[in-house]
Design a protein around this nucleic acid. Structure first.
Length: 519
RNA sequence: GGCGGGGUAGCUCAGUGGUAGAGCAGGGGAAUCAUAAUCCCUUGGUCGGGGGUUCAAAUCCCUCCCCCGCUACCA
């Protein structure tokens, strides 16, 4: 097993100033499905998520709440852990930027950049709005009634200069472009890659990477007045978690560079431009790929706190079920695109695809086995061409899904599984085992075996997306606990004669109120 | 403005030179093992408009119209 392939996948670290919402759940869910898929496919996976806990906003929110920043972040960070638990996320680690291991790593990358003269001391100047506690670019300003400059929020601005360290981003433009050129899959989807390349081609300015205006951050080594600013601190978490600054450690050598940073489209630039530049400047390897996914709308409407239409993952789980929610989010939208959450669509997929197509397939087959074959895995006779075709279609799924998962086309991966589910229902109808019961019981046993075996294979394939329900189906066909991975699809067919538990539905139909009734 | 993505059946989308596809929705039929679930057949498109290249274009070229994204230091 020395050559076991490895896979390192990360979510962004979430800013603790926010309550967990569907966007957080979506990003981590995509990573979870991919991480689980890779584990079932024999990879040694490291799946990282966590929270970003520094910055002026956190400092202020803590002050407003009357607690120290550390206690504040302890509380809020916990909400993200709770979300991960409710969503059954399988992350191997949960990193917090306030942990000593991270502060050490962030300071180490800072030192490397200073040593290589990639960071220098200068002054940050700009239009600052005290009320907003934010700097604005010249182009963002609006004109007040007297022609004075105002922030977009209407707050007065003043020209402020403060000392700041800068990263020589401008020096990395050509190297970044060369990197994109030689790594065409580094940024996905393709349209996002175009945007990034276009942005970099437009010219890069040096980047302010320290602040003196607040203290809740990682202290800059060698200059106590400065804390590391924003992204240099946050992005470094990805190497902290695999052992940086010890680049000789087993975990760093094993897992870095990361295979995939999953991000929302709003933070692509930081991951696709700044991060590889920081790393190359520090003489470290850049990650292999960054995927920027889209946003959800709610019943066609943009989601915002002011509209009050924020979608809470917990509400979806309560209303539709965990696996149903996981399935919908990954099936409804071509991954990478924006998508719309509508109750109508959620219920349609939950009922017709999960309950009717998949759940009922298992139920109808297992019921026949229970009633006609004593609840024991049937003993098959010789397989017909049609038997082989169905079994073969299910056996081919791992190979079919690998490239789709590597391209993060989760919706298409699920569609390919459903092609086999629909084929299975067609097979049931054509073989009509209920008729064979009287005319050819041996053939009926063979048909039901083929179906049970196909269901076993399907349930292994759906495990990354719907771990609970898939596990329940595998229980129903008595698949051994140690034979629930992709290798077992070919290697561990159902053993004839095994006693099966009583069939039980795993995907209930939607029982709640009709969404057309209110709203 | 510049750069980029997109405009294909009622809906969501696949399809990059060779007789228009899938799922859902609609219509008809079959079956009755099953969570009244399933299966089969079927209606439906001038592939945004116009022009061009080609034996042949949704697919290549030109042009026009419409939608969306990016155009930096809030995370």
């Amino acid at each position: 097993m020395a050559d076991q392939p490895r896979y390192y996948i990360t979510t962004p670290i979430y800013y603790v100033n926010d309550d967990p919402h569907i966007g957080h759940a979506y990003t981590t869910l995509a990573c979870d499905a991919l991480a689980r898929f890779k584990r079932l496919d024999g990879f040694d996976v490291h799946f990282l998520t966590g929270t970003d806990e520094h910055g002026q906003k956190v400092e202020k929110a803590a002050a407003d709440a009357g607690v120290d920043p550390q206690s504040f972040t302890d509380q809020v960070s916990q909400r993200f852990r709770d979300l991960a638990e409710r969503m059954k996320f399988s992350n191997d680690d949960f990193i917090r930027t306030t942990e000593p291991r991270h502060i050490e790593a962030a300071q180490a990358i800072w030192r490397r950049l200073i040593e290589r003269e990639e960071i220098y001391l200068g002054a940050y100047a700009g239009w600052y709005a005290i009320r907003d506690e934010a700097f604005y670019g010249e182009s963002e300003l609006i004109k007040g009634p007297k022609g004075e400059k105002l922030a977009p929020s209407g707050a007065p601005v003043e020209w402020v200069e403060e000392p700041s360290y800068f990263f020589r981003l401008s020096a990395w433009q050509d190297k970044l472009l060369a990197f994109y050129e030689s790594n065409p899959d580094f940024i996905a989807p393709q349209s996002r890659r175009n945007e990034v390349v276009s942005f970099v081609k437009g010219g890069l300015q040096d980047l302010s990477v320290s602040r003196v205006s607040f203290t809740w951050g990682v202290p800059a080594p060698g200059d106590a007045g400065h804390v590391l600013y924003v992204w240099l601190d946050a992005l470094t978490n990805y190497i902290t978690a695999v052992g940086f600054p010890d680049t000789d450690s087993a975990s760093y050598r094993k897992f870095w560079p990361a295979d995939l940073h999953m991000v929302g489209k709003d933070i692509l630039r930081f991951h696709a431009v700044y991060w590889p530049a920081f790393l190359m400047a520090a003489d470290l390897e850049p990650p292999k790929r960054v995927f920027a996914h889209g946003w959800w709308t709610n019943e066609g409407q943009k989601i915002s706190k002011s509209l009050g239409n924020v979608i809470k993952p917990g509400d979806l789980i309560d209303t539709y079920g965990l696996d149903q929610t996981r399935y919908f989010l990954l099936r409804e939208v071509p991954f990478g695109n924006d998508g719309d959450f509508s109750r109508r669509s959620m219920i349609t997929r939950m009922d017709s695809e999960l309950a009717n197509d998949y759940g009922n397939l298992a139920q109808r087959v297992l019921s026949m086995i229970a009633k006609n074959l004593g609840g024991v895995t049937p003993t098959p006779g010789a397989f017909t061409a049609e038997d082989e075709a169905l079994l073969g279609a299910a056996a081919a799924l791992p190979a079919k899904l690998r490239p789709l998962m590597d391209a993060q086309t989760f919706h298409e991966a699920l569609e390919q599984i459903w092609v086999v589910i629909r084929a299975s229902n067609g097979y049931v109808d054509r073989q009509a085992p209920w008729a064979l019961r009287k005319t050819d019981p041996d053939r009926m046993a063979t048909v039901l075996y083929v179906l049970a075996e196909t269901i076993r294979r399907l349930a292994i394939m759906t495990t990354p997306f719907m771990p609970d329900a898939s596990g329940a189906i595998l229980d129903l066909v008595a698949a051994p606990a140690d034979a629930r991975n992709f290798a077992a699809i070919a290697d561990a067919p159902l053993a004839a004669g095994a006693a099966l538990p009583a069939p039980k539905g795993v995907f209930p139909r939607y029982q709640g109120p009709d969404p057309e009734d209110d709203a």
